[in-house]
Nucleic acid binder design. Structure first.
Lengths: 136, 136
DNA sequence: TATTGTTATACTCTATAACTATA
DNA sequence: TATAGTTATAGAGTATAACAATA
């Protein structure tokens, strides 16, 4: 079929993102994690007592949509909430949460290494700077 | 906030794809189109009498999920279906569909040009080949 | 047997509005 | 006034199973 769409970088960007996201989702799925949950565990590990709102801003996820995601992390015993003041609560990993975070981190590190390996060497160092220009 | 995620090309790939997709969606929304509809109009224009199944394979969209999308294109009078054999039907743009396709094509061309312009010159030519390696 | 088009369904992701309580 | 957390809800996008008709 005649298809000019792959010549568009924006189109290929989306296809590449979808393809790689599906691969990572499959790997994280093996330990019962979704991508957003893995991202949250990594962020919370590096930022003890972070608030749900701050995490949402960092990941571009609306406050309202954080609620069910964090509830699942809490129900699994991976995070705890401690009051900061009357309206904010700090999120911190439990020991179990830290163990899962380490697993997730290892999966992600391996995935990202393999992803970069698939990029031809002459283009490899250009990928991240080019992507950065499109969203940061 | 401490955030190591942007150092991962796979993460940045997804963030960049989300950010740029949102921008294109906004522009296509001004003429009442979603991205998948624009892609379909472009593909059908280049492949008269293409089948729904073939389009789905090309865009990685399941047959079942093509039904409501194509129904909307048909309800708007942008495509017509003509029987090929007893079980297949060819899709072709109407004159109205072609007019909308041209508008969509112009929006996409402009969007893609501006997207590439945002990538620093030294990285620009590497973006598409790097992305291609991740999904094609 | 494989393919096409279709229906039904469910799950995820995302966006918006609104509310309470607190800073 | 602005922010944090929450509830409810609606719209997309996506995945699976199943079916009839046809190749």
């Amino acid at each position: 079929m005649r298809d000019q769409l792959p010549r568009y970088p924006g189109y290929s960007l989306r296809r590449a993102a979808n393809a790689t996201a599906a691969q990572l989702a499959a790997r994280l799925g093996e330990i019962g994690l979704r991508q957003v949950e893995a991202s949250l565990l990594l962020l919370i590990a590096d930022n003890p007592d972070v608030t749900a709102s701050a995490l949402g801003r960092q990941l571009d996820i609306q406050r309202a949509n954080m609620v069910p995601v964090l509830k699942r992390l809490e129900d699994n015993g991976w995070i705890t909430r401690t009051p900061i003041d009357g309206k904010s609560q700090g999120l911190t990993l439990t020991a179990e949460g830290l163990a899962v975070k380490k697993q997730a981190g290892a999966i992600i590190e391996k995935f990202e290494r393999e992803l970069l390996d698939r990029v031809p060497a002459e283009h490899r160092d250009h990928l991240l700077p080019a992507l950065d220009a499109l969203w940061r």
